[in-house]
Amino acid sequence: MQVNFFFKKRLRALLVFAFLVSVTYGGIMITEYDVIKGFSSIPMAISWGVTNFFPTTDSFEHLPKILISLWETILLSIGSATLASLFALFFAILGSNTTTINPFFATICRFIATLFRNIDVAVWSMILLFSFGQSALTGYFALFFVSFGFLTRAFIETIDEVSNSGVEALRATGASYISIVIHSVIPSSASQMLSWLLFMIETNIRSATLIGILTGTGIGFVFDLYYKSVDYNTASLVVIAIVIAILALEAASNYVRRVII
């Protein structure tokens, strides 16, 4: 019987592997993708990058303009994530089973969050392009919606995980609902929620760059501009600026995390 069990397990692993291989092979056949050519072009791509994709002294003349756009993009990311976190907190308190006012309400809150989360930022941008056109508002709302959906979900899990016991104790003392939320739920989950917010800001900066290309705003637009006008040197400066900004932000948020825990 035991032999049988292990045999079955191995057989299942083998079948999954065979399935993956056949799907990969099928994909290659259908798209007529040449695997060997794909890999052999990597060295060429690198050598092109090294010879063209670096900033020159000329490109540094554009630096002030780049930095202004970058700053705009960072502010947009922080602003959208922060506002979204306020809404998310409200929805998470109503949506968590620990703190909800009634179960029907909780289901609705969770459903709304799921809806907003599962539509990708790029899709949100395209939808919002219709209402706001190519403006910073489109990017702002796209980021806001996705952040809201994601943070609501994360906050609900945080609340369920950490505040059950405190909520029970305070309920037993006869404390009112609002007192319970303020004196038990918020203190026990605040640091973890702040950590999620920092994560969201980092994610937003990454997404904002791509959204910028779509909506013609921010640092993404600046990159697109230089890239399309074949000024690869300046475009590379934009990329370097973005990378530095992301690394700096990550360092800053790691520092904040260490301090609050």
Binding site: S165, S176, S188
Partner: peptide, 20 residues
């Protein structure tokens, strides 16, 4: 709520708000 103020409760896992 008023009646609960007259009944104290003590738990196995203490149920304190840890961060306070």
């Amino acid at each position: 709520r008023r009646l609960r103020t007259k009944i104290g409760m003590i738990f196995q896992h203490y149920h304190l708000v840890n961060r306070l």
